[in-house]
């Protein structure tokens, strides 16, 4: 039983490493992972905003930091031709400056919030609204369902 668990754990670890390796070379995997992280971070804030989780300053800070860090480098993962097999709309490459500006806007909104940390549930609710407005604005033009 123990051996079996070890084997499973090892296999899972290898898969995880393999996935990480792929993510590093593959811009599509990398940017999709960033979006998942950002989504999870907004989700962590959303849970506090909705009262599903208690206010936790550390969790709020971690979520905002992840959003800021990821969104600053997010547009670097869109080399020419990488729309294939991805949700990226060709409009990204026609409007790269606007696309970058929209990504930076979310990063700077997160930075502004970090500078004056939301102090309670109401503050986090406000933060989710501020951050969330960015999601749709960008996805409206630059993400495709395929």
């Amino acid at each position: 039983m123990k051996i079996r668990m070890t084997a499973i754990t090892t296999a899972a670890l290898c898969l995880g490493l393999a996935a990480a390796a792929v993510a590093q070379d593959n811009p599509v995997a990398k940017r999709e992972q960033m979006m998942k992280q950002v989504g999870a971070s907004v989700g962590a804030l959303g849970a506090i905003a909705k009262g599903e989780k208690p206010y936790d300053a550390e969790a709020v800070k971690a979520a905002l930091t992840t959003i800021s860090t990821d969104m600053k480098v997010f547009p670097d993962n869109f080399p020419a031709g990488s729309e294939v097999n991805s949700a990226a709309a060709p409009a990204i490459w026609d409007n790269m400056d606007d696309f970058k500006a929209k990504s930076m806007k979310l990063a700077s909104d997160a930075d502004t919030l970090l500078a004056s940390m939301p102090a309670d549930q109401a503050g986090v609710q406000q933060a989710v609204q501020t951050l969330g407005a960015n999601c749709g604005t960008c996805h409206q033009t630059y993400r495709l369902k395929r």
Binding site: G39, A40, V42, G43, G132, C135, T137, H139, Q140, K145
Partner: peptide, 20 residues
């Protein structure tokens, strides 16, 4: 109401305006 899916993905494309 909010444009967020249960996984905190967001509305995209024409649905952004529809949701608003």
């Amino acid at each position: 109401e909010t444009g967020f899916t249960p996984e905190y993905d967001s509305a995209g494309g024409a649905m952004v305006e529809v949701q608003k």
